[in-house]
């Protein structure tokens, strides 16, 4: 039964992600992104990481995609010119894809997966308290780095939207 649900949700996640990439219509792509996120959240539920599942829906499906849709609708991307294929982004994408495949293969090839008995792994995402405790002790450095990255992105957004210094306030509506 669990296997069936895993395949179902994995199919939703991957199929949704694929359709995001190939959709011509940007609104369709955003909708498939939601499907993909919901599939991922359901996979978290199967792993008994309920808190992560709920956050996945709340933050990504509930807020981030709403912003995507907001931008898509404001920009009105219907019928835009398709850009010609360029060499450099293609090579970069191919390189990234090869790296990704190699990463997945190395995980499967190593003993890390076979060694740990799945029952003995502590599911720190299952209990709120354990999750919070782990986040602020063992994983404090990644947490703070993520926070710092978000701060950098936020400052970047403010700098970009204010323009190059002069007359930046006029398009504030």
């Amino acid at each position: 039964m669990i296997d069936f649900f895993f395949y179902l949700f994995a199919f939703l996640t991957l199929g949704g992600a694929l359709l995001v990439v190939v959709s011509r219509n940007a609104v369709n792509a955003a909708m498939f992104l939601i499907v993909s996120f919901l599939g991922m959240a359901a996979s978290f539920v199967l792993l008994e990481a309920y808190f992560l599942a709920v956050l996945q829906v709340l933050v990504y499906a509930g807020a981030v995609v709403v912003l995507f849709l907001f931008i898509i609708m404001l920009l009105d991307t219907q019928g835009g010119e398709r850009k010609a294929f360029k060499m450099l982004p293609g090579v970069a994408a191919g390189f990234a894809f090869v790296l990704l495949i190699m990463g997945v293969l190395s995980i499967f090839g190593s003993d890390a997966l076979t060694d740990a008995d799945s029952a003995s792994v502590v599911a720190t995402g299952s209990s709120l308290k354990a999750f919070g405790y782990q986040l602020f002790t063992t994983y404090l450095l990644p947490l703070q780095m993520t926070g710092f990255l978000l701060l950098v992105a936020m400052i970047g957004v403010i700098v970009l939207s204010k323009g190059s210094g002069k007359g930046g306030k006029e398009d504030e509506s």
């Binding site: 909708m31 939601i34 309920y50 956050l55 709340l58 499906a61 509930g62 209990s127 709120l128």
Partner: peptide, 25 residues
């Protein structure tokens, strides 16, 4: 009776806005 009750409620109810956005669009 799930442990993350209020978060689940917020998460699901935040999906309701898609009905309005898509209806409008």
């Amino acid at each position: 009776n799930i442990d993350v009750g209020i978060l689940f409620l917020f998460a699901v109810s935040s999906l309701g806005v898609y009905g309005i956005i898509l209806g409008g669009w």
